[in-house]
């Protein structure tokens, strides 16, 4: 991390593979804002692009990783944390950041999330939660709010919703936070805190799927969706509450929800135990 780098103004384009534009995300999708916040945090931390490894899964969130001008690994559905675990243990020198979605991380990849949290390897896991399987056509996910319509809940969702942050904290994640996309500088600061944290950091970004989920549930335009997320989840920062349809009935807390600096980072602890064994001989 260099001080000089921190002083240069943030230009998102210098972190993007511009030759891949236009990107594939739908108009109004919140993932682009999350991506910007992530790259802003990377910039402020002075992380070299050569040293940055982005590991992503499958789905809309998984595909966003490819736009970052870094070492990018687009892996399999639900397993980016497994790949990232191998990569980080093999290469502790790399800054390893996982980009995943709610289906990728909590459904098919749920087992990897809880064990990554338990292990406390220095990986930052950014879960972009848009409450739906967008890429496959809008099916119900473990975070789809109750009563919401999706292409596989034509009568409204009757399943309970995962609180991903509680899950990660319960499993032992030493840095846990949640933020909405419209609070971009706050989101950037949260991600920055997660990356700087020496251990497993889980960050849930409340994103929006306007085209599929929003349309199906009459949640309004993208601007309305992200404002309603803010009104529901950050009421204290929302002075003129003009939104009469809350984004989700179950409001979730935002900000840094857990930060434990006492637990040792797994990779360092493993290497130290090997060293201790070698010196004993």
């Amino acid at each position: 991390m260099t001080d000089a780098k921190q002083q240069t103004p943030f230009d998102v384009l210098q972190y993007l593979r511009q030759e891949l534009m236009p990107h594939f995300l739908c108009p109004g999708c919140g993932h682009g804002i999350a991506l910007r916040a992530l790259l802003w945090a990377v910039h402020e931390l002075g992380i070299e692009k050569d040293n940055l490894a982005i590991v992503s899964g499958i789905g809309c969130a998984g595909r966003t990783g490819a736009y970052i001008d870094a070492n990018t690994f687009h892996t399999t559905h639900g397993r980016p944390l497994a790949f990232a675990t191998g990569l980080k243990l093999a290469r502790p020198d790399l800054e390893v950041i996982v980009i995943t979605g709610d289906g990728d991380c909590l459904a098919i990849g749920g087992n990897h999330l809880i064990h990554a949290a338990r292990r406390n390897l220095d990986i930052t896991c950014l879960m972009l939660n848009n409450e739906v399987y967008g890429m496959t056509g809008g099916q119900v996910s473990p975070t789809t709010s109750e009563d919401r319509y999706t292409t596989t809940t034509p009568l409204g969702n009757t399943e309970a919703v995962f609180d991903a942050c509680k899950l990660a904290e319960g499993a032992g994640a030493t840095f846990v936070g949640r933020e909405v996309t419209v609070q971009t500088p706050t989101l950037k600061n949260l991600i920055l805190g997660g990356i700087a944290h020496d251990g497993f950091a889980f960050i849930e970004v409340i994103s929006d799927c306007t085209e599929i989920y929003g349309r199906k549930n009459d949640l309004g335009s993208s601007a309305e969706m992200i404002l309603s997320q803010k009104s529901a989840m950050r009421p204290e920062t929302f002075e003129n509450n003009i939104i009469d349809r809350p984004f989700r009935p179950n409001a979730l807390p935002t900000g840094v929800l857990a930060h434990d600096k006492t637990r040792p980072e797994y990779g360092a602890a493993y290497r130290a135990s090997i060293k201790a064994q070698q010196t004993k001989k």
Binding site: T75, R79, A82, F83, H112
Partner: peptide, 14 residues
């Protein structure tokens, strides 16, 4: 599944 994923991740790392 995670085992094979981690193996690939480590191999990608070199």
């Amino acid at each position: 599944i995670a085992s094979m994923g981690a193996v690939l991740g480590a191999s990608m790392g070199g």
